[in-house]
Amino acid sequence: MAASRTPLLAIDDLHVSVEGKKILNGLTLQVRAGEVHAIMGPNGSGKSTLAHVLAGRPGYEITAGTVSYEGRDLLALAPEERARQGVFLGFQYPVEIPGVNNVYLLKAAVNAVRQQRGLPEVDAFEFLGLVREKMKRMHIEDSFLSRGVNEGFSGGEKKRNEVLQMLVLEPRLAILDETDSGLDIDALKVVAAGVNSQRSPERACLLVTHYQRLLEYVVPDIVHVLVRGRIARSGDRTLALELERRGYDWVTGEAA
């Protein structure tokens, strides 16, 4: 069954530097379709770097290692191609883009994927209906439709917007970088419900988080601890609980 299939995402011995500074140091990780992996780790350990490298952000130097996605070389693809192939990054710090309408961006993004698959563009009216329905699920108010991308959104609203985009785009691999940070308790539940609704045997999710609380709602299959650019420890969900109790010193000490 699951174990026999090739992983959806296979990262092997990945080394990455930024401006000459080594950040990822031989990171190896396999994610199979259907799985949710949580990635935890101290500030500056390289979690966002990993997320950005997977999404194709420029400015990172990959000095060694490979990443394959659906059996193909992910690193060879341009960022927009990765998105069209179903890779989605929920940003830790979503940027505001005044003047570009939220719905326009959503539609352009959906049409980019559809074009890739040889499908016609979405019907504008139906699409709006679909967006409204998902907005309701994410508790996003109507004024969102007429606003610029993340323009004037609060921190929590930006995070919910990231999840809304994910719900609309239905990616095969979602990488959510601290999407739970800065959310109030109700918003956390809403976001968790959004993520859970995406779980399916075909899809996978990498959840970067600092908090065990999210993992109460979105139960991960595996928890990894990233320390100084490599996975220092992996385990089941109880690892998150143990980290909460004992702190990172426990793992970083071991990894040193």
Binding site: A55, P58, A78, E80, V95, A112, L169
Partner: peptide
């Protein structure tokens, strides 16, 4: 703004369109 540009690319938009 490079952050804006990358955000749009990460949503699948062509660089030229972005």
């Amino acid at each position: 703004d490079e952050n804006m540009l990358f955000y749009l690319l990460s949503r699948g938009l062509e660089p030229e369109v972005a």
